[in-house]
């Protein structure tokens, strides 16, 4: 079970007529109005005009967009991208405390194994003096993606909305993209699992569901959730609000609580892209870990012995 299926069962409204207001609200113009409150009834009522002229009042969370724009696309259409969108992500490193909620939510939403982290959190240390910091690393959805370049069958592709997606129905599993990605963002479905299914008609590169064995997989920027006006799993679940997601055409990013101007944020807060020198032109920006809300050690508290071992390369160089 994933939350998408749960959402489906709640799509009981607006079957008969299409509300005039729904289009504009659900049309993702204002990401912030939706973010963070789709799980429970908000209690907030919205007045809508139905097609036959009646004014109805519905709970805000019951509004589900039913136009073609709101459903994940399949096949060839999925290679095009959502018109007019340019998705970007901004991760504020000063806020990340390695709560690992983004990893959990992403794994839950995308039916991943514990070993498959689409947004692993690394512990980084820039030099011997500066303090270590936590560094969530999704796929960067590069404008010049090395993975797309090397794919022999065009199973991975760049869309107009900035997302780099994988067509699991076409992927032959040669793993070239995994070795070509300089950021190690890609994973492989090594095992056969019961939840996997080949050539499923529900499958869309936008949802990456259901998975398939023997193919590459990675962070997909959750364009299906954007279609519904929701934030990606990671951005939505981060308790610190470290992950902002938005659209560079709109010049707006949000973490669900606050909405910022993208350009202004990057300008004033010294936003940077990881390893800019590689020329891959990522669409994920970082805000440097300055004026941190928490010491990095707080991120070590909830980790098991096993997980701590992973960060040994940094921890051995710092006094614990």
């Amino acid at each position: 079970m994933n939350s998408k299926e749960k959402d489906k069962s709640r799509r009981n409204f607006l079957r008969k007529g299409f509300a005039i207001g729904a289009g504009t609200i659900a049309g993702m113009g204002a990401l912030s109005t939706f973010a963070g409150n789709e799980e429970k009834k908000s209690g907030e009522k919205v007045k809508l005009l139905t097609a036959d002229g009646k004014l109805v009042e519905v709970d805000k969370t019951d509004i589900d967009c039913k136009t073609a724009d709101c459903l994940p696309t399949h096949g060839k259409a999925a290679r095009k991208g959502i018109p007019g969108r340019k998705f970007v992500m901004v991760i504020d490193l000063s806020k990340c405390a390695n709560a690992r909620k983004c990893i959990d939510a992403c794994q839950h939403g995308h039916d991943l194994l514990p070993s498959q982290e689409w947004i692993p959190v690394h512990l980084m240390k820039n030099n011997s003096i500066s303090d270590p910091y936590w560094f969530p690393k999704p796929c960067y959805h590069c404008d010049n993606p090395p993975c797309v370049k090397v794919c022999p069958v065009g199973a991975t592709f760049k869309r107009t909305d900035n997302a780099v997606l994988i067509d699991s129905d076409r992927c032959i599993g040669c793993k070239f993209c995994i070795s070509a990605c300089p950021y190690s963002a890609r994973r492989f479905n090594w095992e056969n699992r019961d939840s996997y299914s080949d050539n499923d008609s529900d499958y869309s590169p936008e949802t990456s569901l259901p998975g398939q064995h023997g193919v590459a997989s990675k962070c997909d920027f959750c364009p299906d959730r954007s279609r519904e006006g929701k934030l990606p799993y990671c951005a939505k679940s981060c308790p610190m609000g470290a992950i902002y997601f938005g659209d560079s055409n709109e010049d707006a990013i949000t973490n669900g609580e606050e909405t910022l101007r993208l350009r202004e944020t990057l300008e004033t807060k010294a936003g940077y892209r990881f390893m800019e020198n590689l020329g891959t032109d990522p669409n994920v920006y970082y805000l440097p870990p300055v004026d941190r809300m928490f010491p990095y050690k707080r991120g070590l508290k909830n980790l098991s012995e096993e997980q701590l071992k992973a960060y040994e390369n940094i921890l051995s160089k710092t006094d614990k």
Binding site: K149, R170, I172, C174
Partner: peptide, 23 residues
Amino acid sequence: LCIGRVDRLFNLFIHARIQSPIT
């Protein structure tokens, strides 16, 4: 043997991309 999906090997021909070193 190294390819995850042997059953889709024909994709190398029907979806061939000349940009890829594998092609």
